[in-house]
């Protein structure tokens, strides 16, 4: 399945993160997972939400700079080697991970990982073929 991640530009100052989150909350958009990349001056908030198109329009209308990126979302068992198995599957394919983040749904059960690859379609197909749970 194709997941779309929204990247939002934020200034590195108190309260910068709460504004977009509050907007999404008010509109009933659920944030499924997120990651925050920061530098001294600015941050990039990466969001995976249940309705990316609506969230994008909402954020843009409220003055945020938003970029949509295709990402691959994988389910992996929550145990040692879960992430390594995914990376092993990509070994030698030339596909590069730009960044990734993840969370555990239920400890001891499974984890969900979000990957941004330089070639999302190729990576998604390949991982599926190798028996990874691409969701």
């Amino acid at each position: 399945m194709k997941w779309k991640q929204l990247s939002v530009f934020l200034e590195n100052k108190p309260g910068a993160l709460s504004e977009p989150c509050r907007l999404l909350a008010k509109a009933g958009v659920n944030i499924q997972t997120f990651s925050l990349a920061d530098t001294r001056e600015f941050g990039i908030l990466r969001l995976v939400v249940d309705d990316s198109e609506r969230a994008r329009r909402l954020l843009q209308r409220n003055g945020f700079a938003v970029k949509v990126t295709k990402v691959v979302v994988l389910e992996t068992p929550d145990r040692p080697g879960g992430l390594a198995a995914i990376l092993d599957a990509l070994e030698g394919t030339g596909i590069s991970v730009k960044y990734a983040y993840g969370f555990t749904v239920k400890p001891g059960d499974k984890g969900v990982l979000v990957f941004c690859f330089d070639d999302p379609d190729g990576a998604g197909a390949l991982l599926k073929k190798k028996g990874m749970r691409v969701i």
Partner: peptide, 13 residues
């Protein structure tokens, strides 16, 4: 920053 200039990576920015 504009939506056109925005990158999803810190390196890009």
């Amino acid at each position: 920053v504009t939506a056109e200039g925005l990158s999803d990576t810190v390196g890009g920015m």
